[in-house]
């Protein structure tokens, strides 16, 4: 990041925090919390250790949901991209399931995974899997389907075939779009985990928000929101890093 971008970014935050502070001046605990109250709340929940349990619970669910979605979604999407028949059969189904918010599946997920160990975690992971799965499948499908024919033809002319063809031609050429899809999916999964934990489970940052609300501690609510933002940002930066290194190696880094 250039010094100028860093500076401007800081100015953006400063403007926001200042207007937030002015708008909430003189508020008590229980009212809309201001930045100072939020920081004090943050220090308190971090000190009590509650926060870390909840952070770990949320990150754990997202990590599993996302990895399962990537593990199943990428191969499936690439197959859809490569075989038009398969795509024509299943893509309409995928596209019609995609707009359903995963939260709507919550009651079914709870019942589906009921009665076994860690069932509330499994239900949440299932929702996260759904939320990440569709963007990943869609990105992988279109990445492979839109492969430049000239790559394919020239590779064939050089006699590259089978697994080597997949590894040396299809994968590198579709990688940029798949990685963008993964990054997008991770962002969606993070938004969904917080929403899902507000309804179904008894740990995690979403639970922290709802539980603090029940406890009439709005400063803990805003503190949890700050943590949600920070971790969301970190996850996105990590994915951007993976994306950049993977692309740079192939001489395809953007700008």
């Amino acid at each position: 990041m250039s010094p100028r971008a860093l500076l401007l970014g800081t100015v953006g935050f400063a403007i926001f925090i200042l207007s937030w502070h002015l708008a909430t001046l003189g508020n008590q605990i229980g009212d809309l919390p201001g930045p100072a109250m939020t920081v004090r709340g943050l220090v308190q929940i971090a000190g009590e250790g509650v926060l870390w349990e909840n952070v770990v619970a949320s990150v754990f669910r997202v990590a599993w949901g996302f990895c399962l979605a990537a593990g199943i979604g990428i191969p499936l999407g690439m197959a859809f991209g490569w075989y038009p028949r398969l795509r024509e059969t299943f893509n309409p189904l995928v596209q019609s399931l995609r707009p359903i918010s995963p939260i709507a599946w919550l009651p079914f997920a709870v019942i589906l995974f009921g009665g076994i160990r860690m069932s509330s975690d499994l239900a949440a992971i299932f929702l996260l899997f759904l939320s990440a799965f569709f963007p990943i499948v869609t990105a992988s499908t279109s990445a492979v389907a839109s492969l430049d024919l000239k790559y394919i033809r020239s590779a064939r002319n050089f006699g590259v075939d089978g697994l080597a063809f997949f590894r040396r031609v299809v994968l590198p050429a579709s990688l940029p779009q798949i990685l963008t899809g993964l990054r997008l999916a991770l962002g969606i999964a993070w938004v969904v985990v917080v929403a899902a934990e507000m309804l179904g489970v008894e740990s995690g940052l979403g639970y922290q928000v709802m539980d603090s609300r029940n406890a009439l501690r709005m400063d803990f609510v805003s503190a949890a929101m700050v943590v949600i933002a920070a971790i969301g940002l970190m996850l996105d930066m990590a994915m951007a890093r993976v994306e950049a290194t993977a692309l740079a190696r192939r001489g395809m880094s953007r700008r």
């Binding site: 009651p107 709870v110 309804l199 489970v201």
Partner: peptide
């Protein structure tokens, strides 16, 4: 944090 999540957990065993 809500009644439905409690009743669903009971129904789910």
């Amino acid at each position: 944090t809500s009644w439905p999540s409690m009743t669903e957990d009971i129904d789910a065993g």
